[in-house]
Simulated assay, not measured.
Amino acid sequence: MELSLHRLRMLRELHRRGTVTAAAAALHYTASAVSQQLAQLERDVGAKLFERLGRRVQLTDLGMLLTEHAEVILGSVERATMALEEAQDGVAARLTAGVWASVATGLLPPALAALAADHPGIEVRTKELAPEETAGAVRDGSLDFSFVIDYSDYPMPWDPTLARVVIAVERLHAAVPAGSVPASAVELTQLADYRWILAGPRSHFGRAVRIACQRHGFEPKIDHEVGEQATALAMVAAGLGVTLVSDLGLSLRPPGVDIVALTEPVMRTVSIAHRASAARRPSLQLVIEAVRAAAAEQGLGASGALPVPD
């Protein structure tokens, strides 16, 4: 019997999520692909591992037994990877990172360029995900690390199986149509009568901005609900409303957008999240150092970081 690590990871996720659809979403596969791989795992084992109960899936006793061993096996693989890296004179590794647009454009390129020059054996691949999804993908094993954010008005809930290292601290600024706000700095309340362009309330960014506005005594009048910061800024340039943008997001600014400081700024902390069990992995530590250096060079060093919630 040969057990695929890939299929064991899917079985573990099925146990955690309870449905094939949820497991597939967590692992970034289609539900049909996960179903096919789990069926193949049953054929590999030669026994029934799960049974359907309506929309949910329940593991059989053998399925539970294999899932328990899968946790041990997958943990051993991670520890073996770390041991091999520690034993090498030069670090060689391939890591997969979860990113979002402003990190991918404003922070990662200089960090990876420096890493490639100093440690050419380390290869970093990226997957662009919503910030709300990246930590879960690290926990589930589909990413080695991810970038996560905490806002001064809205810290992100945290998983105790993960560790995180603060990388950068950003301010949020008002992004307004060119010439529409003559002042160089405004209070957030001064934007209460403007039309807004903002991410949905289920997104971490959208929720954080709404909370900041509510703290200043108003509900933003949202005409356009969009998920991508670049899209929001393009709509600002067209005169369709205002939004907030972070320091890293400034690299996405098109012509026709003025950036106005907030007199009482909304802050956010950017961190790298990884599994706590991987804290000693040399390649991961070298990546963290490279990203920290890139943030410091842009004036976004972590010395003023927000408190990280337990």
Rank of each mutant, 00 (worst) to 15 (best):
R9P: 01
I288N: 06
E123H: 09
D144S: 08
G179P: 03
R125A: 12
G206M: 07
S146K: 04
R275F: 08
R215P: 00
A175K: 09
T19M: 14
R207E: 15
L188F: 06
T96I: 07
S102D: 15
L162F: 10
A23Y: 08
H204I: 05
G75F: 04
W196T: 06
A208S: 15
A26F: 05
A33C: 02
V138K: 06
A178D: 13
R207P: 02
E86P: 00
S180C: 04
P220G: 03
G200L: 03
L191I: 01
L115Q: 10
T231D: 15
A70E: 10
A295K: 07
G179Q: 03
A185I: 00
P282L: 07
A273I: 02
A92P: 01
V166S: 15
T263L: 12
D44P: 03
V148Y: 12
P265I: 07
A104M: 08
F50I: 01
P254H: 12
A70D: 06
A114T: 02
S184W: 00
A83L: 09
S303I: 02
L129V: 10
P182G: 14
V57I: 08
V257T: 06
E51L: 02
H204P: 01
P201F: 11
G121F: 06
A296Y: 06
I211N: 04
L252V: 04
H119D: 14
L3M: 10
E86R: 12
A234F: 02
R253N: 04
V186N: 13
